[in-house]
Design a protein around this nucleic acid. Structure first.
Length: 443
RNA sequence: GCCGUGUUAGCUUAGUUGGUGGAGCGGCGGACUGUUAAUCCGCAGGUCGUGGGUUCAAAUCCCCCACACGGCGCCA
């Protein structure tokens, strides 16, 4: 039953002149009364298959004529090198067996016209039919690129002896501001969906020293932008005996490794998506400059952007700042007042914290946020109180610092954002199979 | 939370100064021996998002609502 021959095997020339059995789905069909062309699709590509009435007989020919788009089918035929076929290969059909038919009363809804004006963006109709839209070449390419990005992240950390570590998804407190928490009923109490793995990772830091995860994070933000999801995949790392610049170094190497991996594994998909491979090479090969917050504010003020020292850099400002960047840039040393309590104040000037954001070019914005943690008990209590954050939910987090605290840090990377940026997507929704935002939880 | 745009056939859409809605794709039927978004001929398919108002007459003008999409704030 298991399939052994894939379309890419045929197109790579392994079966020239041989009789093969091919299983797949019909993606396009056309022809006359005497000859029928079936474009077959599987997970590895497409190939034109030709049925001639005088070869296959009337019964098979009529079956093929009646088979609609997305019918699943088994074909037996001879692999033929023929440049009249797109891709240079075709299958000359000898026999055919329909496995799963498609009812003409409800034909496959994802038609050329359904995708006509989407421009890679996504219409309501395509989002409502996401479970079927996944079969299109664009989504298939996105999903493969996504898989390579996940693989690259795991490989990066495992090659450096990081331990994969898992935090709970039900939590009691927030990492970011409390308004963006999803509240869920929990046996008569309230719990929340996690926004980050970080606080729990810091608990294991003294045990594992180098740890990472890739896990979903949840934020109840009513954001309607091409960069936001309410459920997104978060790659996070935490490392003991490390400062801000050590953490940044890992962030830079990781992102460059991801870009390099796509060039190794997914040039075909990127090319089909019309992505400029020279850009990806640039992101893989060049170092990422580092810039202090103060410098960024000065640059923006020189550009006549309305910003005052102490303000966080929102997207409109990031966009202006990054428009001339040709590689991602780190922004470091934000004012303490713009960042949450777990960022460690700079001992050299406690107005600032030891943190960094990595900003992607081409208008994709922030893809990494990280830094050195506030690691001593005294300092964390001071920061929490300064912020007016209640201590209660963070008692365990404070307790960690009472037993041999050490300098440490980490970052969180938005995996979907990386996928979106590197694939050149119009919208972050394009790179995740079933996107969740403030207005959509279905299908 | 705020701002903007939109909702017409299964899909993508046209619809003029208000006068009972037109096309392409898809489906069905037919023609065609090499197509490749195949082509050609024909058929079916519409409470014009909901509710109200103006008018002799509303897809079209006005109001409410619903839903969607885009953008902002926030962030990965």
């Amino acid at each position: 039953m298991q399939k052994s021959i894939f379309i890419e095997d045929i197109r790579s020339g392994k079966y020239d002149g041989e009789v093969v059995d091919l299983k797949g789905w019909i993606t396009r069909t056309r022809g006359s009364n005497k000859i029928r062309f079936i474009v077959l699709r599987d997970s590895t590509g497409r190939i034109q298959c030709v049925a001639k009435r005088d070869v296959v007989g009337d019964a098979v020919f009529e079956n093929l004529k009646a088979a609609l788009i997305e019918t699943s089918i088994e074909l037996r035929g001879i692999v033929n090198v023929d440049d009249r076929s797109d891709g240079g290969y075709e299958l000359v059909i000898q026999s055919a067996n329909v496995i799963g038919e498609v009812n003409p009363e409800s034909p496959f809804p994802i038609t050329e016209s359904a995708m006509a004006n989407s421009d890679g963006g996504e219409t309501e109709f395509l989002l409502d039919h996401r479970h079927l839209y996944l079969r299109t070449s664009r989504m298939t390419q996105m999903l493969k690129i996504r898989s390579s990005v996940f693989g690259a992240i795991h490989r990066y950390f495992r090659e450096r002896d990081f331990t994969e570590y898992h935090a709970p998804n039900f939590v009691a407190g927030a990492v970011e501001g409390g308004s963006t928490l999803f509240e869920v009923p929990y046996f008569g109490r309230k719990a929340y969906l996690t926004q980050s793995w970080q606080l729990y990772a810091e608990a294991a830091m003294p045990a594992l020293e180098r740890l990472y995860t890739i896990a979903p994070s949840f934020r109840a933000e009513k954001s309607r932008t091409r960069r936001h999801l309410t459920e997104f995949w978060h790659a996070e790392m935490e490392i003991a005996w490390a400062g801000n610049s050590d953490v940044m170094e890992h962030g830079e190497k990781l992102v460059r490794t991801i870009a390099k991996t796509l060039l190794d594994e997914r040039t075909e998909e990127l090319t089909e998506l019309n992505r400029d491979l020279d850009l990806i090479s640039r992101y893989a090969d060049n170092p990422y400059p580092r810039m202090r917050y103060d410098e960024a504010v000065e640059i923006l003020q020189d550009m006549k952007v309305d910003i005052e020292w102490g303000q966080d850099l929102d997207y409109s400002k990031e966009k202006v700042l990054t428009q001339d960047f040709d590689v991602p840039h780190f922004l470091t040393h934000y004012p303490k007042i713009a960042k949450p309590f777990y960022h460690r104040p700079d001992p050299e000037d406690p107005k600032y914290v030891l943190c960094h954001d990595l900003l992607a070019p081409e208008g994709y914005g922030e893809i990494i946020g990280g830094g050195e943690r506030t690691w001593s008990e005294a300092e964390i209590l001071q920061r929490i109180d300064e912020e007016g954050t209640p201590r209660g939910p963070y008692e365990f987090y404070i307790d960690i610092r009472r037993y041999g605290g050490v300098p440490h840090g980490g970052f969180g990377l938005g995996v979907d954002r990386i996928c979106s940026w590197l694939s050149g997507a119009e919208h972050i929704r394009e790179v995740i199979p079933f996107p969740r935002d403030s207005r959509r939880v279905t299908p």
